[in-house]
């Protein structure tokens, strides 16, 4: 066995996995505050990337400014989605809410096809294609940058949830009736979580687009995001980070050793297996809360 190759695939896999975590963290943010599993997170990621391109190519903004503007726009779009589409469904059966997010997913994907077409475009954020050398191992620069950003974003959220407003959001996710009873505006809290998920989607969109270009296939990241979110426990940001790491490593190693045997589909098979096995054996994931029971 070639240990250097194994280490290389493991490391690159873990970096890719952390980039999956970015998508998963958006799903977790919304799920935590309102128990809505957001199936539109993938297409929100895609939309974020398209909006960056729109600012930079249509209005000629430098790429960093385009990213800032797109982040702000997506913040507003997140609030609008919650206000227009989700709020009226509060208290309705979860299946209707789930179908609503699926509808949004289709709407955003089809809408982007209408507006921007299906041609893939590059997202030039200035990361060189040359690999980083870690001893004898080759590390992909774009993946390394993405993983670093994922960790930074996770750290920012960890800090945010210690602030007064963060504590209020966690209170909403614990018991929204009790939150109402002390004057917390639950609706505004949920809207804020959609806004934050949209901002994370933009960041994920930019990073993934810098690897694979901007087109509708970015929306397929939903499957990775959902798998990682479920594996991490749906309501745990730390869980999403570690589950991403785990999925990335397993997927990378499976990809390089099983692809020759399975004809190139082994990554998706590994994802599907992880998702299904998690739901069957450990529905609350690795780090999801089992409800606290008093001893």
């Amino acid at each position: 066995m070639d240990w250097a190759l194994l280490a290389e695939t493991g490391i690159n896999g873990s970096l890719i996995g952390l980039m999956y975590s970015l998508v998963a963290m958006g799903i977790v943010l919304i799920y935590k505050s309102s128990s809505v599993p957001n199936l539109a997170q993938g297409s929100m990621t895609m939309l974020g990337a398209y909006i960056v391109l729109a600012y930079s190519s249509r209005f000629g903004a430098p790429i960093w400014l385009a990213i800032v503007l797109a982040t702000l726009s997506m913040f507003g779009i997140g609030i609008a989605i919650e206000r227009i589409a989700l709020r009226r469904l509060a208290g309705r059966p979860i299946i209707m809410i789930l179908m609503m997010t699926l509808g949004l997913e289709i709407l955003l994907r089809a809408g982007s096809l209408t507006i921007w077409g299906a041609t893939g475009r590059p997202m030039p954020i200035g990361i060189s294609d040359d690999p980083l050398f870690l001893g004898a191992l080759l590390i992909n620069r774009a993946y390394a940058a993405g993983a670093a950003v994922a960790i930074v974003i996770f750290g920012l959220f960890a800090l945010f949830f210690r602030t007064r407003m963060g504590v209020v959001l966690r209170a909403i996710s614990d018991d929204y009736t009790a939150a109402w009873s002390v004057g917390i505006s639950v609706e505004r809290g949920v809207a804020l979580s959609w806004a934050m998920a949209s901002v994370v989607a933009t960041v994920a969109g930019v990073l993934w687009a810098s690897v694979q270009g901007v087109d509708q296939s970015l929306a397929h990241l939903l499957l990775k995001g959902v798998t990682v979110a479920v594996l991490g426990g749906m309501d745990s940001l730390g869980g999403a980070l570690l589950a991403g790491l785990l999925l990335g490593i397993v997927e990378g190693i499976a990809g390089s050793y099983l692809d020759p045997l399975l004809g190139g589909a082994s990554r998706d098979l590994v994802d599907a297996a992880m998702l299904i096995v998690t739901i069957m054996l450990r529905p609350h994931g690795l780090f999801g809360r089992h409800d606290i029971e008093r001893i």
Partner: peptide
């Protein structure tokens, strides 16, 4: 509320902080 309904995953201190949102 009936049944106390504290924010279980928050500490008592955070429960009090959350209740001062207004």
């Amino acid at each position: 509320l009936e049944g106390r309904r504290v924010f279980e995953h928050l500490t008592p201190d955070e429960n009090l902080i959350a209740a001062s949102a207004i």
